[in-house]
Design a protein around this nucleic acid. Structure first.
Length: 852
DNA sequence: GCTAGGT
DNA sequence: ACCTAGCAACGCCCG
DNA sequence: CGGGCG
């Protein structure tokens, strides 16, 4: 069909009102969070409603989480209209959502753990009618997470859906939009009255609104098309009813150019718009409104498609890539999914404007075998065969599309097996090796390809040749605990390619080769060994990305919480031979001293997952997958225009957890909950430049103390653990950051006047004299952090930030005098010298008068 | 990527 | 024939 | 480092 004919045939029927009628809400609703069991998708939603809880009930149906009784609730006085979709309620599992209940008077969130797990307690509250509530399905696993709301009076339902999988009607953009917008409208309606309230209500109830924002995730679409998939097929064939395309090895991607804002996303509805902005830019060159299906493909320097290059897009934004478009789902107002494939592609060819990046992916009719051989010559992954008259069926993997791949097979030696997980019996995966230059070399795991029978019989065989030690020189990292085996058994595997590290990608077990001895396959293909040569070089360039580990993983219980500790033997301080385990042990030993200084203070995490000499990063926003017992607080960040969940550390368990994440020093705010706007202390950071000696720093610190003494302030100093000294002055939360900062400025100016030769107030590094100590008073701002007292620092020597008596500040003192080895002893001897820092603050007015 | 098991 | 659930792998990005 | 994603 030609594009022109198609356009002429377009109808503009406006029959796109969503199904179902609009009803006035009855008074009672039951809320149930429903999900499909464990698919890989997660879906976060949040729904806030006005209403008073009337009663609650355990939902009917099988529960994934039998302990979770928190899901069905009855509500009164629900003030909103809602639309009612009839029928098609999927049967499924109920489970794992969260209900947060609020006190309708104070708007304080009630403690879920205690309130909701205690049925009597809750019912009491319910009777009193004093609860409002908020529902949020956080981390709901399941493809179709949705909220069902049942109207108790007439048994009708409202669904808020993730994806309207169960509806029978075909895709139609307008209709779909209408449905989606219902959800948004619904949620917006909920927000509206709140917003008006916001202005009226005082700041006391601020947390309520802070919380509302946190689950919005722009990266994941609420509604999206799942593309049609291909079935694996063994052999190439010729058939006049079929067409053949290249099988691209990249990311499958759908481009929805049907609306004002174009969408571009993965099979799972994750947006590609920013990740592949080059492609997105070219969407604006398109003249037609379309929905496209294709594959994002990257090319290496030889022009060969390269999956690995595509993955590394973060490192090289100038990567040569294309969007190969091979299907058209919608065009200028109407679905094309029910047109035969060849018609869709004709339309696509005409409608799509090709650019350097966006390409039409052509096909060859009938001659599959020739085409397949051609693909092989070009070293491509394989080909896709498509039935010429087939329709496009979303999210279906049926035999209209077939993928025919080239199989690489190789014989390898079984060197061990891993523990099975879940319902698997026998073993999880085989550890594979092969001889390269006469050295047994690790080449990957395979955990698939066996059926129950082969899995069992193989397990029996392997049990007989178990050994204690690994046959490899360097022990490979395994996902699960491993049992080693004498390298005697040979098996055949197939795989898609060998990665740059010389490891099989997509390895699949094929069969045991009893006819072969390990020695026979010693000289594997030249290609294999070449690739491995290469990988060795690559490894040399980026050392220790994959370090050997001994799996001394353990789980300890602190404060009644289970903390999983991993890689305890990993070396964090190579020169000092200090391991992660040592770091954890240190902090546990000084916990009584350090915890008071961390209590209720949001933390900036400074993480060194691979030790102090490797890449580190800062993390403020706690990911949503932290253990539920870790405490966080939400703080609005203007620069990001969003709320950030800060972790704070009030107990040993959190401390160990943070250390395990690679936090070597702890960087708390100067202010603490509940009042984050008023710092508990002022910090003066004496930050030396490269050419300063520590004696200079000491001299400056003493001068600071002089200034403080002159206005009758008691200051407290500590080594920063690095090169500087920090002076703290208690403020008692009486002044805001602005006041404290300005006050610090005044003090520092005085110090600078007294020591103009070795100190500076110049903030800019470029302009700063490299022989001068920077008097940093700007740490007294919201969200600024310094390494806390008793913090271990990520510096050679494993030094500790240690409080000092002023008398101890004299030349000869070195910042490395206090370290992981001797800190505890010293702290025990001196007690917590920094305790007064958290105490009663100074009277700034008095001081200012004295300054006059 | 694969198998098992249901409809 | 078609679908889901559950298991297994590797490499990369992200905070 | 752990989780999520291809």
């Amino acid at each position: 069909m030609a594009l022109k004919d198609y356009n002429d045939k377009r109808k503009f029927d406006e029959t796109t009102e969503p199904k179902g009628k609009t009803k006035k809400s009855e008074n009672k609703l039951i809320f149930v969070i429903q999900r499909h069991a464990a698919s890989r998708l997660h879906y976060d939603f949040r729904l806030e409603m006005e209403g008073v809880l009337k009663s609650w009930a355990v939902p009917k149906g099988p529960s994934l989480n039998p302990d979770d009784k928190r899901l069905a609730m009855m509500v009164e006085d629900h003030p909103y209209d809602y639309k009612d979709f009839e029928g098609n309620i999927p049967e499924g599992n109920y489970g794992a959502g969260q209900v947060e209940v609020w006190d309708s008077g104070t708007y304080e969130p009630l403690d879920q753990e205690s309130k909701l797990s205690d049925e009597k307690e809750l019912l009491k509250e319910l009777k009193a009618g004093s609860l409002k509530f908020i529902l949020h399905g956080k981390k709901l696993k399941g493809e179709f997470a949705l909220v069902k709301m049942k109207n108790a009076e007439n048994n009708s339902w409202l669904l808020i859906k993730h994806k309207d999988k169960f509806a029978e009607d075909k895709y139609d953009a307008e209709e779909n939009t209408a449905k989606n917008s219902q959800v948004t409208k619904f949620l917006e309606e909920k927000k509206k009255p709140k917003k008006q309230q916001k202005e009226v209500i005082t700041s006391e109830i601020k947390p309520k609104f802070q919380r509302f924002n946190s689950l919005v995730d722009e990266k994941k679409l609420k509604t999206f098309i799942k593309p049609m998939l291909a079935k694996p097929f063994e052999k190439a064939f010729d058939d006049e009813d079929w067409v053949f395309e290249i099988k691209w090895d990249g990311y499958r991607a759908v481009a929805d150019l049907s609306k004002k804002e174009s969408l571009f996303y993965s099979r799972n509805g994750i947006s590609f718009l920013s990740k592949f902005d080059k492609v997105s830019e070219d969407f604006s060159k398109q003249k037609h409104k379309m929905i496209l299906d294709g594959e994002i493909v990257a090319f290496d320097e030889n022009g060969k498609p390269s999956f690995q290059m595509l993955q590394q897009i973060g490192d090289n934004p100038d990567l040569a890539l294309t969007y190969q478009v091979f299907d058209l789902l919608w065009l200028n107002g109407h679905s094309t999914e029910e047109l035969p494939l060849i018609q869709r592609k004709e339309l696509l060819k005409e409608a799509l404007i090709e650019t350097d990046i966006i390409k039409y992916c052509d096909h060859i009719p009938e001659k599959g075998i020739d085409f397949f051989n051609q693909m092989k010559k070009m070293e491509l992954e394989g080909m896709i065969a498509k039935k010429a008259d087939s329709l496009y069926i979303e999210n279906s993997r049926n035999s209209d599309w077939l993928k025919i791949k080239f199989t690489n097979t190789e014989e390898v030696i079984i060197c061990g097996f891993t523990e099975p997980r879940g319902s698997r019996e026998g073993f999880g995966a085989l550890i594979l090796g092969k001889y390269i230059d006469e050295k047994l070399t690790y080449s990957g795991h395979t955990g698939t390809g066996f059926n129950n029978e082969s899995l069992n019989s193989l397990h029996e065989k392997l049990k007989k040749i178990v050994t204690k030690t690994s046959p490899f020189e360097t022990i490979p990292k395994t996902n699960m605990p491993v049992t080693w085996v004498k390298p005697e058994l040979v098996c055949e595997i197939k795989y898609s390619e060998i990665t740059k590290d010389g490891i099989f990608r997509h390895p699949v077990f094929v069969a045991i080769r009893e006819d072969k001895n390990p020695e026979e396959i010693a000289d594997s293909t030249k290609k294999g060994s070449q690739i491995n040569e290469k990988s060795k070089k690559m490894k040399a360039k980026t050392p220790s990305k994959k370090t050997e580990i001994s799996d001394k993983d353990s789980e300890i219980t602190l404060n009644k919480h289970k903390v999983k500790l991993t890689n305890q033997d990993k070396v964090y301080f190579p020169k000092d031979k200090v391991t992660k385990g040592d770091v954890i042990e240190y902090y546990q030993s000084v916990a009584d001293y350090i915890l008071p200084h961390l209590k209720n203070r949001p933390l900036s995490l400074n993480r060194y997952p691979n030790g102090i000499n490797e890449q580190s990063f800062y993390q403020k926003d706690a990911s949503d997958n932290i253990p539920d017992w870790i405490k966080t607080t939400q703080v609005y960040s203007e620069s990001n225009d969003k709320y950030i969940d800060y972790i704070y550390c009030n107990d040993k368990a959190t401390l160990a957890y943070l250390n395990n994440l690679g936090c070597i020093d702890l960087n708390p705010w100067n202010s603490s909950l509940p009042d984050l706007d008023h710092p508990d202390f002022m910090v003066l950071d004496l930050d030396p430049s490269k050419k300063n000696s520590f004696d200079h720093v000491i001299e400056t610190a003493l001068k600071v103390n002089e200034v403080l003494n002159s206005v009758k302030i008691k200051g407290y100093c500590k080594t920063s653990g690095s090169t500087g000294i920090h002076v703290y002055i208690p403020m008692g939360g009486k002044y805001d950051f602005e006041q404290v900062k300005d006050f610090a400025h005044i003090l520092m100016k005085q110090v600078n006047e007294k020591l103009p030769k070795i100190t500076t107030l110049e903030r800019s590094l470029q302009k700063r004299d490299d022989k001068k100590i920077y008097l940093d008073y700007l740490q007294n701002r919201t969200g600024q952090t310094l390494a806390s007292v008793y913090s271990l620092r990520p510096k050679e020597g494993a030094s500790v930030s240690m409080p000092l008596e002023w008398e101890e500040l004299k030349s000869g003192l070195k910042p490395t005098d206090f370290n992981i080895h001797n800190a505890l002893e010293r702290i025990k001897e001196k007690g917590d010298l920094f305790k007064p820092v958290l105490g009663k603050g100074i009277d700034m007015m008095k001081v200012l008068e004295l300054l006059e």
